[in-house]
Design a protein around this nucleic acid. Structure first.
Length: 135
DNA sequence: GCCAACGTTGGC
DNA sequence: GCCAACGTTGGC
């Protein structure tokens, strides 16, 4: 099972919106690296939910409930979407600044490549972020 | 609000 | 196929 991280601007679609909706189509990704990551997601895999622009923290865990399919918002047919459902809110948000300050997370892809909206998280990184959130 | 980083587009 | 120009993202 792989783990992932997705970014969303909370004033556009916050984790609370996902909790309210129950599930959502994760569309609008227009970056080929991110597309590759979306295509690699398998049902049931868990995803860290990061708030960009405002919050700047991982706030919750979601899971993949539908694997990659053509992005309904993309007329070119080149991009894909998945569906995500909420798992739970973290006990405590883990801020980007904390992750940057943690040597165990030095290779976290979202830190190394800040603009990537969908990125993989290794098992060790996943465990470390959850430890930071929940002890 | 600014600016750096970087991915995509399009002309050649 | 290269590369300059452009647009967008996202942290600060």
């Amino acid at each position: 099972m792989s783990h992932w991280l997705v970014k969303s601007e909370p004033n556009t679609y916050a984790f609370a919106d996902l909790q309210r909706d129950g599930r959502t189509v994760w569309d609008g990704v227009r970056n080929f690296t991110a597309r590759g990551n979306l295509k690699a997601m398998k049902s049931g895999e868990e995803v860290l939910y990061y708030h960009s622009q405002e919050g700047l923290a991982v706030v919750g865990i979601a899971k993949v409930v539908k694997e990659a399919f053509p992005d309904p918002s993309d007329e070119s047919g080149r991009f894909v979407a998945v569906e995500l459902a909420p798992v739970r809110e973290l006990k405590r948000p883990v801020a980007l600044a904390e992750m940057k300050a943690n040597p165990k997370l030095a290779d976290l892809q979202v830190i190394r490549q800040g603009r990537l909206s969908v990125s993989p998280v290794t098992d060790d990184e996943w465990a470390e972020i959850l430890r930071m959130a929940e002890g």
